[in-house]
Write a protein that binds this DNA or RNA. Structure first.
Length: 570
DNA sequence: GCCGTTTTCGGCCCGACTGTTTTCAGTCG
């Protein structure tokens, strides 16, 4: 074992004191540890060289602490520390390392908000949950948010939504620089993968040497660290964002775009179709031409994952993918009735102005106390307001929905008589996220079988780069939705994208419709449906099978039919 | 838990800073 410095020993005491504070241990006991850490860190001579009998002579170190020092020197840790660590979720310990929050604030976040990882905390910041807590405010929330985002990005992965705007901005800047004849995104960002490690770009230029010196100096790359490997530039931004720019030529541009976009498996599958080096010798005018030479229709970038897209293309059975413009309404949105930022009317008007036919308002149900879930009285109040707005904004239509918590036993959150007052119900899990797969699946199956359930909300509860979803048997859940005519939500929040796109194919096989829901807590949240469409396309979703690509009339008919079923079953 | 004596228990490291307060609590180095 490496020799422990005074610094290391002090750190063990500091860490222990922090955990003691988190667990509300004796204030003065932990202060003595803090004090010991302070004294030790300022000590000139290394404790490891000191006879243990002399430890107690140091001011601030008594009998107990000198024994602790001895233990640290021989084992590298402390019994107390280990005990506290066992009693604390690792994510909570990690939260204490976030700059700006210490044990007191972490304790509030953990105990009052139920937040157990930095990722969940980031999500809570985005949902504006912290500002209401005592001792917290907007500035603290912003500061925490920034600190966590930085931490996450330093791990090397980014949410698609975090990099896409920058990617587009760089492509535009490169185009406008006049240095290149053609510029495009490639790789995972062009395939619209939900998580990205970098922004990949191809830029075509006739004379490579001309741009070599100029590219790093472009204004948009101010503050970037630049490395050049052959014809590839690797630029690292101040926030840790990595941008790879591959220099191509006008002649090879589409070929390079093609090779760089599909993942390795996709390219391998296509190489098998290649006859006598047809790709090597030919110059192409477009990517579509490349596929055509291979005897295939154009394969959309989102599909180039090396699954069965090449077989489908060979059989001419590629799906016609859903487009963002196909969406006709937005279901599952929040207002100030629960934890949204805008009033019902503001949400409705904004939705209408974006060109949608309808809005499904789904505030939280009563069990979601943290989100100001609706009591039965407030539901009545909200419904009156919706009716008034429906007259005012016609033909725009607001559907009365609720995001009903799925309770631990799988039941919904209101009695049937109350559930019956809604046009539709999104049933979601928000608590008890640590069930076994068997229990979590059983819970969902019960909720799906409930005749009032219209849409199953964010099926696994995952938060990308932040929290694993609870484990579920996807096939069993999708089968149940097929059996009971329940629509599955593709929650389009860029942290969720849940149902995972890899399961959409199975849902489609079972004839289960998918609703691309923004879960908007803010007017700007409607845009998230775009990210939902990105991954929905990866999952081969079509317009026909997209629930909110239906017109207001069709959706209304579906809701009515579904409600009739609930009466028959009863 | 440790210290320092008013020798047996009461008070405890510190100054700056920030953000949330309305007189202070929490964090940092």
């Amino acid at each position: 074992m490496e020799e422990l410095s005074n610094r290391d020993i002090a750190d063990v005491f500091t860490e222990t004191a922090k955990l003691m504070e988190l667990h509300n241990a004796n204030e003065f006991k932990l202060k003595s540890l803090q004090n010991a850490a302070f004294v030790i860190s300022r000590l000139e001579s290394p404790l490891i060289k000191m006879p243990s009998s002399e430890l107690e002579l140091i001011k601030g170190i008594g009998k107990s602490i000198s024994q602790k020092i001895t233990q640290i020197l021989s084992t590298g840790t402390l019994d107390e520390l280990e005990t506290f660590l066992k009693e604390t979720p690792t994510g909570v310990v990690e939260m204490m390392r976030i700059k700006g929050i210490g044990p007191k604030k972490v304790s509030v976040l953990w105990k009052q908000l139920g937040v157990e990882t930095p990722g969940e905390l980031l999500y809570a910041c985005n949902e504006n949950r912290l500002v209401e807590l005592k001792g917290f405010g907007t500035k603290t929330q912003d500061q925490i948010k920034k600190a966590i985002e930085y931490k996450l990005s330093s791990k090397g992965y980014f949410h698609y939504a975090a990099l896409e705007p920058l990617g587009e901005e760089i492509v535009t800047a490169l185009n406008q620089s006049g240095l290149f004849s053609n510029v495009t995104l490639t790789g995972a960002i062009r395939r619209k993968c939900e998580l990205l490690q970098q922004i990949e770009i191809i830029a075509a230029v006739q004379n490579r040497n001309e741009v070599m010196n100029e590219l790093p100096g472009l204004k948009i790359f101010g503050g970037y660290e630049v490395k050049q490997i052959d014809s590839m530039f690797v630029l690292t931004g101040p926030e840790g964002v990595v941008v790879n720019i591959l220099l191509s030529t006008p002649q090879n541009f589409f070929k390079d775009q093609f090779y760089q976009t599909g993942n390795t498996a996709h390219i391998e599958l296509l190489r098998k179709l290649e006859t006598s080096g047809s790709l090597e010798t030919t110059q192409f005018e477009s990517e579509a031409q490349i596929y055509s030479v291979l005897g295939l229709p154009f394969i959309e970038p989102e599909l180039r994952e090396g699954l069965d897209e090449v077989d489908l293309a060979l059989a001419n059975k590629l799906p016609e993918l859903i487009r963002f413009e196909d969406l006709k309404g937005s279901l599952h949105n929040h207002s100030t009735y629960s934890d949204g930022m805008h009033s019902l009317k503001e949400m409705a008007v904004a939705c209408r102005d974006l060109g949608y036919e309808y809005l499904g308002i789904c505030d939280h149900s009563k069990s979601a106390f943290y989100a100001n879930g609706l009591s039965e009285e407030r539901i009545i109040q909200q419904h009156l307001e919706i009716e008034k707005l429906n007259t005012e904004l016609a033909p725009f239509r607001i559907f009365k929905g609720i995001e009903s918590d799925i309770l631990h036993n799988g039941n919904l959150d209101y009695p049937d008589a109350v559930l019956n007052q809604f046009d539709f119900i999104v049933a979601s899990v928000h608590s008890g996220l640590k069930m076994t797969e068997e229990k979590a699946t059983e819970r969902l199956l019960t909720a799906i079988a409930n005749p009032f359930t219209t849409i199953l909300g964010h099926p696994t509860g995952r938060l990308l780069l932040a929290r694993e979803g609870y484990p579920i048997n996807h096939k069993a859940v999708i089968d149940a939705c097929a059996e009971h005519g329940v629509v599955i939500e593709l929650n389009a929040h860029p942290y969720r994208l849940d149902l995972d796109w890899r399961w959409i194919r199975y849902a489609l096989q079972k004839n289960v419709m998918i609703s691309v829901n923004p879960d908007a807590h803010h007017i700007s949240g409607y845009h998230d449906m775009y990210f939902g469409v990105c991954v929905a396309r990866k999952g081969h979703l079509t317009k026909k099978m997209t629930f909110n690509a239906l017109s207001a009339t069709e959706v209304e008919e579906w809701f009515l039919k579904r409600k009739q079923v609930s009466h028959i079953v009863k």
